[in-house]
Design a protein around this nucleic acid. Structure first.
Lengths: 246, 246
DNA sequence: GCAAAAGTGTTACCGCTACACCCATGG
DNA sequence: CCATGGGTGTAGCGGTAACACTTTTGC
């Protein structure tokens, strides 16, 4: 067993969420299968970004590697949310053809562990193995290759829940952000409208959201104050939630 | 690939939590390795309950099967909480010896998906493949075989979080239970003391906790009213939580 | 009758909700 | 000067936290 050999049975799929101050987006890759002889396109659809793990590699390392190969970024927010191993998850005709064409056993049982990650789409340059990677609005996605639509929906549920209980909204924004941008993150992902004044009162209680002596520039309206997240303050002031529902 | 063959690379570990009205417990199995020639015991320790999946079987089905084989019970609360696949997770000397002795490749990469389940220890009869299965208090567990201590801690974190946000406490109790028993579930798992009157006020708001015209019997104090959970009422009256932290 | 747990109400405080107007900037 | 989003305060309500005594049963 070479350490630098890919494991045939264990893969990681990354649901890379991005935010452009307007919509929640996700990174998807074109999958185009062409007829070996004629070169005609047999089908074209979209997949999440993912890969098999190396024999020496942890799941988390594999997810971070995929993210790095895609974006060149490190230390991105990354969270395991579920494992997918349904016996039929790769059995649709297109998927079977794709596996055969890429020299893999279409009958082998492959488990995929799902990670989602959060980043601001701004200033991210995408490339991946010469394949076509693009941001797609989550709300417009109808179906994906393999069981990736299922994985995406599952990631969304996990993200919403995490967003309700942990301070992660700013992971979808640049390092310095405005409160309106942060509010929009919550509105888009939770699918609600929030009151600006109440939202700001809440932020004011969260001491780890630090107001900077710095303002937006070049906007055609009153420039907003910038904030940043302080993990140090967060770690010091976090207290356990105890407001449970029975 | 026979459908009834165990998959060599994918396993499921069940963290079976139980509650005896006093403590949170977990089901563990003796693992005893004896010298092939002399019959002397080489070591003895404890593992979670788990098994490889069958080639035709989903992860959830495998977890339910393990639970059924252990307890004879079906429709037990069961929740996937994480996947474990660290390259070194089976590399400790005892684990390597165990794998070799049971005819498995000690170097193969095995992923394990963790499920936790909740039940009342009362009236559960345990048996498993002739091996010794017992309830152990979670608070007294120091180490386990393989990476099972890690898996257990991870299950605990997931359980606490779930208990805060979803009505699952009664899954650790008999069908009919008293409010003091339910309160004790929360106190033990969350590690807090709760005020009896405030707890009951909260329960009163949860319409899916139905008071019965039935009381405890044979207790040496004022007998308590029994309650049960109504999933039907819960589904109808649930509303989305929106009390997020930023 | 005594030990043990069941059951019950009030007050103070805090956070949530709802709601409308003026301000600073770019074009 | 106009369009655009930034930024601010108050009042009512509902849930949380703190707190002590009486009741019912088995033995």
């Amino acid at each position: 067993m070479s350490e630098w050999k890919l494991n045939n049975y264990i893969s990681v799929d990354c649901v890379v969420f991005g935010f452009d101050f307007e919509q929640l987006k996700v990174l998807l890759v074109d999958r185009v299968l062409k007829d070996e002889k004629t070169g005609n396109e047999l089908f074209s659809d979209l997949t999440l970004t993912g890969n098999h793990i190396y024999e020496h590699e942890s799941l988390e390392d594999a997810a971070a590697r995929i993210l790095f190969d895609l974006t060149g970024l490190e230390n991105i927010y990354l969270k395991q949310f579920a494992a997918f191993c349904d016996p039929d998850r790769l059995k649709r005709p297109n998927d079977q053809a794709w596996l055969r064409a890429s020299g893999r056993d279409p009958n082998s049982r492959i488990i995929s562990v799902g990670y989602y990650s959060l980043l601001a789409t701004k200033n991210v340059t995408l490339k991946w193995k010469g394949r076509n990677v693009k941001w797609y609005p989550v709300s417009e996605i109808k179906d994906l290759a393999f069981d990736h639509y299922n994985i995406l929906q599952s990631a969304l549920v996990a993200l919403r829940r995490e967003l309700l209980y942990e301070p992660i909204g700013f992971e979808l924004l640049p390092e310095k952000f405005t409160l309106s941008q942060l509010q929009k993150v919550y509105e888009v992902i939770l699918g609600v409208n929030l009151d600006k004044r109440n939202f700001r009162k809440k932020v004011a209680r969260m001491k780890y959201l630090i107001p900077l002596d710095e303002k937006q520039k070049g906007v055609a309206h009153k420039p907003a104050r910038l904030y940043m997240f302080s993990r140090e303050v967060y770690e010091k002031t976090r207290k356990e939630v105890l407001d449970f529902n029975i």
